[in-house]
Amino acid sequence: MPAIETVDLQREYPARRGPGLRAVDGIDLAVAPGEVYGFLGPNGAGKTTTVRMLVTLLQPTGGRATVAGYDVATQPAEVRKRIGVALQAAALDLLMTGREMLLLAATLHGIPPADVADRGADLLERVGLSAAADRRVGTYSGGMQRRLDLAMALIHEPEVLFLDEPTTGLDPTSRLTLWDEVRRLRDEGTTVFLTTQYLEEADQLADRVGIIARGKIVAEGTPATLKAEVGVPHLDVTLAGEDHRDLAREVLARFGDGRPPTEECDLSVALPDGSAGLAPIVRALDEAGVQVASLDVKEPTLDDVFLAKTGEHLEGAD
């Protein structure tokens, strides 16, 4: 049984005039237990709407979804017992201290009163907030608030964890800390449904990635297969001067198909064998007397996948 399954899931927001907006337009998902599923898409793609439906905060207007085996529309109470949720905007009370928030979360999740304090302290430790536990949440940095939000989502050891853009707006250090925590959860066997605008994040964390654009999944697979589908690594060449451009192009043509160069390079060539194909090219350029300023081997990215499927770049593409 999948941990998350959706069939033709839809959500339409009514418009003041005319037809409503199909924010989620027929999504089919099957996330296996223990899997980290990355839901990658630009702003406004429908990620949050999908998550809100899966966590029972929003009624689907079409199709159906089950989480941990229970239908989100007809058995929301069963779903809520089994999920942890960290929404895109941290759902915190700035007047409470971190410890108070965790104790409240523990109580609301029915953790026996005798265990509440220990469980809260353990989680504060785990997310590195022990020292700040008795300070009001309003004094926390963005990264600390995210970590507290995550701790609250984990208080009852949920089967399925939903993280909606957990690192958007975080500094790089906080981002890495959060990544580590997600990896640890995966190692512990928690199913994680993670949305992100950052391809690197999906690439690093997800066992499988679904790319969503305008409410539809446009590609799905492991990061490696997705990237393999759209292409091979390529070599970007920047020349030292203009003189040898034609010569250089001739040399490169011997090694394979040229690609349109990007703004950052003069010439680009596909490298079907990856970096292994690099040495002969370098030697050939050298023998022909071409002066090269830099050579860059570029692996295909999920942005290439997005580009291939939608004709646009991802905003979060670095």
Binding site: L57, A77, R80, K81, L87, A89, A91, L92
Partner: peptide, 12 residues
Amino acid sequence: AGFFDRLVVSPI
């Protein structure tokens, strides 16, 4: 503040 969402997704 969104805190309400957290209450509503809790099993209470």
